[in-house]
């Protein structure tokens, strides 16, 4: 097993899947000649040529829809958004075309494609370039939403997403591209969509965390261990389909839950997970499910304000102590 960054893991996944299937192509702003705005697509133009690694104009609605059309007749597009912020311009094609095509055509037209790119909070880029949009996309039946938190997950999940026959929203965390971890060398290393991962086993409280919140939850768990609280950290890895079974199993064991996320709380994924737990395991709860979410404000620029807007380890610790009545 090699130790590589999330950026490199994603690059490997793209390279291997482009090698494996000639119907796979990659398209987006600056993905080819520039080597990717975040260097995730580095070297791919050189290896696969301009037919399969394509620089687009800045025309998100257009190339997202072009990808959906190409998927209707047999190609497997990977459409990169330079950041998910720009996908907002393409939501008509993602939601009205990609998500609904199979259903409204009575099962005739599947859309095997991946929309991917960095999302969530970035470093001091203010409101329009720093936001978490997973709850938008997870809302729609027909879409799958994936958010990896480690290099191994990033590689295994992206390969599965590319081989999947449904449109997959693949949200990488902009702050986490440089994070390192072990990744299996196997070219067929796949992680199935819809399977959560227990990142740390524990007995006293469950922390459900995704994306940027996973390393923070693990740090919080370490600290809480010292305080005598054993935490189980669960990363759903895919938001839709959501592996609620693994979460419920943990809740039945620990009876206390904190759901951590960097996104806004209102109408968010943590609220949904909380509702699922209440419906399925209310009798097992010893305390109300507690959410830790990003501040309900547009992202500010100033460093101190930005720090206040994104949940940190301390907030997760405080929430766990709250549900444990400590």
């Amino acid at each position: 097993m090699a130790v590589i960054t999330i950026r490199e893991a994603l690059n490997q996944a793209l390279r291997e899947e482009l090698q494996r299937d000639k119907n796979v192509f990659l398209m987006g702003e600056e993905v080819a000649a520039y080597q990717g705005a975040y260097k995730v697509t580095k070297g791919l133009l050189e290896e696969f040529g301009p037919k399969r690694v394509i620089d687009t104009p800045i025309t998100e609605l257009g190339f997202a829809g072009l990808g959906v059309g190409a998927a209707m007749v047999g190609l497997r597009p990977i459409v990169e958004f330079m950041t998910w912020n720009f996908s907002i311009l393409a939501t008509d094609q993602i939601i009205n075309s990609a998500a609904k095509m199979l259903y409204m055509s009575g099962g005739q037209f599947k859309i095997p494609m991946v929309f991917r790119g960095p999302g969530g909070s970035a470093f001091q880029v203010s409101s329009q370039h720093s936001q978490a949009l997973e709850s938008w996309y997870a809302y729609f039946p027909g879409l799958k939403v994936v958010m990896p938190s480690t290099p191994a997950d990033a590689k295994g999940l992206l390969k599965s997403a590319i081989r999947d026959d449904d449109p997959v929203i693949f949200i990488e965390q902009e702050r986490m591209y440089g994070q390192k971890g072990e990744v299996p060398d196997d070219e067929d290393f796949l992680i199935p969509l819809g399977v959560a991962d227990v990142k740390r086993a524990g007995t006293d409280a469950t922390i459900v965390a995704r994306s940027l919140m996973v390393p923070l939850a693990l740090k919080a768990a370490e600290e809480l261990e010292k305080q005598g609280v054993s935490c189980e950290v669960i990363d759903p890895r895919t938001i839709r389909p959501l592996d609620i079974g693994t979460i419920i199993k943990s809740v039945k064991k620990t009876n206390r839950v904190v759901v951590a996320e960097e996104s806004h709380p209102f109408c968010g994924v943590a609220g949904e997970i909380s509702a699922e737990i209440n419906e399925r395991a209310f009798d097992y709860l010893d305390a109300p499910v507690r959410r830790v979410s990003g501040a309900d404000v547009p992202m500010p620029y100033a460093k101190n304000l930005e720090n206040l807007a994104i949940p940190g380890v301390e907030q997760i610790i405080a929430a766990v102590r709250e549900v444990a009545y400590l």
Partner: peptide, 10 residues
């Protein structure tokens, strides 16, 4: 219109 453009692309 973008969809048709993608079909032609394919």
């Amino acid at each position: 219109i973008p969809l048709a453009t993608g079909v032609a692309f394919a």
